[in-house]
């Protein structure tokens, strides 16, 4: 049996396919794990998955999204075992259909686009924070349907995902403008609606996303602009953070210890934040348009069925 490193596999999946989301990569990694390890008993399978999941979560600093994937996978395995006791069949199914999950995940994005396109009307000015494949596929779909709308894209520091989205929209021919993150407050009155993606959707219906989403959400709420989250349902995660402090992060949110002369390097702070459900108007998912409270129902359904 060759040495199998779950983290490497996970990262490799992400690298190979840029369209793949983190939860799917995690699921794929776990499927690969099963294929390679071929556990003999149900208990062994569960234990293998459990330990690998823990390992994976530990090794990746921003683990929210992949955690969602692991959750679903684990739950699926457990449920099948309990319900049917037919774990061999289940394993077989998982191993054989690895690729299918990936394609389904991608398809769910198309579904989101179809469902969400009604939210975009002619003459809308849409503010987008961060780069999300789901948001882009929605905007793309709307443009294909000849809806005339304009986009305001934030730079989304520190990852600068905004630049990526800007180029993509530019290529698509959608009128787009790039602003710095701190300018959101200044332009929010001119904007009609806000779209963001999510790394994970917490049980409360709040979302965990790229840092800055919270501030955008608060500003939108204050200006009474609708704030929509576009996300796949496999990003629903069993977490209930009360604030950004509760999120798993690499270091402390505020670091006062390190001294450096390089100003670029001096820039520290969290890279993700938590936006509570009261700022969210609706979640556009492949399961339909959900109110934040519907998220918890989906999660409850998954765990207590």
């Amino acid at each position: 049996m060759s040495e199998f490193n779950i983290t490497e596999t996970y990262l490799r999946f992400l690298e190979e396919d840029t369209e793949m989301t983190m939860p799917i990569a995690a699921i794929e990694a776990l499927v690969t794990l099963l294929r390679i390890k071929t556990p003999e008993t149900a208990a062994e399978m569960i234990n293998t998955i459990k330990s690998s999941t823990e390992e994976l979560i530990k090794s990746i600093p921003n683990s929210v999204s992949l955690r969602a994937g692991c959750d679903i996978f684990m739950r699926f395995v457990l449920r099948n075992l309990h319900l049917y006791g037919d774990w061999e069949n289940c394993k077989q199914h998982l191993i054989e259909n690895g690729q299918l999950f990936v394609s389904r995940a991608k398809k769910s994005r198309n579904k989101i686009a179809e469902i969400g396109v009604d939210f975009i009307a002619d003459d809308d000015i849409i503010l987008v924070h961060g780069y999300s494949r789901a948001v882009f596929s929605l905007l793309n779909h709307a443009a294909n349907k000849f809806i005339r709308f304009r986009c305001v894209v934030t730079e989304s520091r520190p990852s600068k995902q905004g630049n990526q989205l800007y180029t993509l929209l530019e290529q698509k021919g959608i009128p787009v403008t790039l602003i710095v993150d701190s300018a959101v407050g200044a332009v929010i009155d001119k904007v009609d609606k806000v779209f963001v993606g999510a790394e994970g959707v917490a049980e409360s219906g709040g979302i965990i996303n790229l840092v800055g989403t919270y501030s955008v959400g608060v500003l939108a709420h204050n200006a009474r602009k609708p704030f929509y989250v576009v996300t796949e349902s496999h990003k629903f995660v069993r977490m209930f953070p009360l604030s950004s402090d509760d999120l798993p992060m690499a270091g402390p949110p505020l670091d006062f210890t390190r001294r450096t002369d390089d100003l670029e390097d001096a820039l520290r702070g969290p890279t993700i934040d938590y936006t509570a459900q009261e700022y969210i108007t609706a979640l556009i998912t492949d399961l339909g348009v959900l109110t934040p409270s519907a998220v918890s129902e989906e999660l409850i359904k998954m765990w207590y069925d």
Partner: peptide
């Protein structure tokens, strides 16, 4: 086909 849980993803084809 549409309203269903997140499990769809892992469902058997």
């Amino acid at each position: 086909p549409l309203i269903s849980s997140m499990f769809n993803l892992l469902q058997k084809p």
